[in-house]
Computed example of a mutant assay.
Amino acid sequence: MINKPDTAAESHENVKRQLLDAYQFRHAVKDFDPERKVSKEDFDFILEAGRMSPSSYGFEPWKFVVVQNPELRDKIAAHAGGARRQLASASHAMLVLARLPREMTADSDYISYMLNEVQRLPQEIAEMKRKTYDTFLRTGFALQDNERAMFEWSCRQTYLALGNMMTAAAMIGIDSCPMEGFVKHEVERVLIEEGLMDDSRFGLACMSAFGYRSAEAPEKTRQPLENVVEWR
């Protein structure tokens, strides 16, 4: 018997089911199977999901540093008690950097680069967008005069990219674990010493590990939908 192609409705339902299955599959892996490695093709796919992620005004305030050197992982782990097991066993370890406030002001060289060279906007439109963005920073979220708040705003956007990378990984059967269990200034010092972070431009937002679980996942627990959603 020849199978008929899925209808549009069936295809729609299949996509929804696959995505929810991926969320059900994903959990925060603490111990990865050190013998199993993620292929280059698969990890490139995960990175592309991060690169294509949304960001405020499309300004992409992130950088992804993939750390595969075991000695460097050990140096980082010395200041990352909440990530030692993952750093020791994961196929791929990633440090997610966020741009500092001086990089994200409306008149910065980075914002000019994004407007003119990446987004390639006509000059009039670019300047209009720059002014709108400046107003947002100063009066919308009132970030401009609070460096900590402005850096945290950049960090929050990196989590959009990280979430997409974790979902992309889960869709193809690859495990992940996001991590904040580290002493920020100490890990940043290591990155600076290793030439992996320019501290005039970036700060460390979070870490993540990718690979394959070494044991079955525990039962997933979540609150019921009615506890977290309100309609009016």
Rank of each mutant, 00 (worst) to 15 (best):
T7A: 00
M165V: 10
A9R: 00
P34M: 03
L72Y: 12
Q24E: 12
G58S: 13
A80F: 04
G163H: 03
K16L: 03
G81D: 10
S53W: 06
A90T: 06
D74I: 04
A217D: 13
E124P: 08
A126I: 02
E147M: 04
S112L: 05
D145C: 02
E216C: 13
T221R: 15
A168T: 09
V66C: 11
T132D: 15
R36E: 14
L160W: 03
N116V: 04
F210C: 08
N116Y: 05
F43H: 05
M179N: 07
P54W: 12
E60V: 14
R102C: 14
P224S: 11
E60N: 13
I76G: 01
A93L: 09
E35W: 04
S11F: 00
I192G: 04
E71N: 11
G211D: 09
V187E: 05
I46A: 06
M197W: 07
R102L: 12
E35G: 13
K40T: 07
D134N: 06
D107N: 14
V38F: 11
G211E: 08
V66W: 13
A209Y: 08
A83W: 04
Q24V: 05
V29I: 01
A83T: 03
N14T: 01
Q223I: 14
K63H: 11
D31W: 13
V67Y: 05
E230T: 12
A169P: 03
Q119E: 10
Q157D: 08
E230V: 12
A209S: 15
R84N: 02
E60S: 13
G82E: 05
H79A: 12
L115V: 03
G173Q: 07
H92P: 02
D21Y: 00
M128Y: 14
T105V: 13
A93I: 10
K37D: 11
D175V: 05
Q68M: 09
S55K: 08
M94E: 06
R148P: 01
A49T: 09
C177E: 10
V15T: 09
D198G: 06
A49K: 06
K37V: 11
F136M: 05
W153M: 04
P178Y: 04
